[in-house]
Amino acid sequence: MNTLLNNSDLFITGFRNTLILFFISGFFALILGTVVATLRVSPIPAMRAAATLYINVVRNTPLTLVLFFFALGYPKLGLVEIDFMTAATIGLSLYTATYVAEAVRSGINTVPVGQAEAARAIGLPFTQTLTLVILPQAFRAVIPPMFSVFIALLKNTTVAAGFSVFEAGAIRSNLSERGEPAMAGLLWIALVFVLLVFILSFVQRKLEKKWKVAR
């Protein structure tokens, strides 16, 4: 307990950054992933191919390498300069978006074809058919796998510690510098993660109940 209380500054800053990484990356991953999923079901072959390529390349690359690229490779390109936190956010967003895209796509596949036909029959164009009829039902169908993706994202944020971002994964090394026992520090970090995931699961159950689509 002393390890936690005496170093609450580390824990608070660390987990605050973890949550910032999580929410910002989660937000962009959700948007980008949904766009990519809709491209994968688009009637235009080039769009489908581009989306499939993106998913296969990024999803098949270890997260560490993706972050490596943004933290170390990207600055060498001489484009707009970004700090490590931004680099980590971009890397995590792009990486997680591939998983979101596949979850959303599987959701789209659960929506009966007749729903899209009915939407088109009343004169809704392709984008509105997607946003008003298909996607709302697709999201409802994939809440459990979607939350698994976000739980994974929450834990994946700790990889950013390896790239000079001070988040929860970096708390331990800072504790060591202060001479605190490493094991106690790690246990506390793990406990907070369990708690955070527990909150996510709670939200998941609430949404599942609220959004149940009866057929």
Partner: peptide
């Protein structure tokens, strides 16, 4: 301008 009624109704389930 063309109304369509399907065999399986296809009401928007949500």
């Amino acid at each position: 301008d063309v109304g369509m009624v399907f065999q399986s109704f296809n009401l928007f389930a949500h």
